[in-house]
Simulated scan of single mutants.
Amino acid sequence: MVPGERGVLTQLRRGALEYCVLALLEPEELYGLDIARRLGQDRVLMDGEGTLYPLLARLRRSGLVGTTWQESTEGPPRRYYGLTPEGREALESFRRTWGPFRDAVDSTISRGSP
């Protein structure tokens, strides 16, 4: 990674990661490690679990996700995270905003290109 890109990536993640988590939880409840694996697959959205659990706690405190404990055949019970109605509303709001925002950024940064 070129020097400086890490800072840019950190800023972009900060703004979008919580909505990526909400999107992952839209179709089904997931436990933390599963969320981390899915977000970390490409090493772009998340490069370690260190930021995920504080983010999940923040989403829970803000009422965007709820949690349940479920027994696991592979060890101790797991905490599963799922969207609340407020979380669904926040995700839909982000989706309505993201497209025009992304398009404006793409348009602006490509203006200097031939």
Rank of each mutant, 00 (worst) to 15 (best):
R43E: 15
P100D: 07
R88I: 02
S93A: 15
E49L: 11
G66R: 11
F94M: 05
G112T: 10
G87D: 04
W98N: 03
R79E: 14
G66N: 03
S93W: 04
A16E: 02
E86G: 08
E49Q: 11
A16V: 14
L56C: 05
S107H: 13
P27R: 04
R43L: 13
E74K: 11
P76G: 12
R78A: 01
I109Q: 07
R95Q: 05
Y19G: 02
R96D: 00
L30H: 06
R60F: 01
L12F: 10
D103W: 02
G112D: 06
S62D: 11
I109Y: 11
Q41A: 12
L39T: 05
D47T: 14
G15D: 06
L9G: 09
R79S: 03
G40D: 00
R58C: 06
S107A: 15
P54C: 06
G4P: 08
S110F: 03
L24F: 07
L22H: 06
E74T: 10
L91Q: 04
I109L: 15
V105H: 08
L83Y: 10
T97F: 10
S72R: 09
R58T: 13
P54T: 06
G75C: 01
P27Y: 02
L39P: 01
I109F: 14
S62M: 00
T10W: 04
A57G: 11
L56F: 07
R61S: 12
V21C: 04
G87W: 01
R6G: 13
F101Q: 01
Y81K: 02
G112H: 05
V44I: 15
R79F: 03
G15H: 09
L55S: 08
Q11T: 07
E71C: 03
L64S: 04
P100Q: 04
S93G: 12
E18Q: 14
S113Q: 10
R88G: 12
G87H: 01
Y80I: 09
E28F: 06
E92A: 15
T51W: 09
L17A: 09
D42M: 01
G50Q: 12
V8L: 14
G63E: 01
S107D: 12
P77H: 01
P76N: 05
Y80R: 13
A23N: 08
D42P: 01
T84C: 06
E26D: 12
A36W: 01
G48H: 10
P77V: 00
P76E: 12
E74G: 05
R88C: 08
T84M: 04
G15P: 02
M1N: 09
A23H: 07
R43G: 14
T97E: 10
V2H: 12
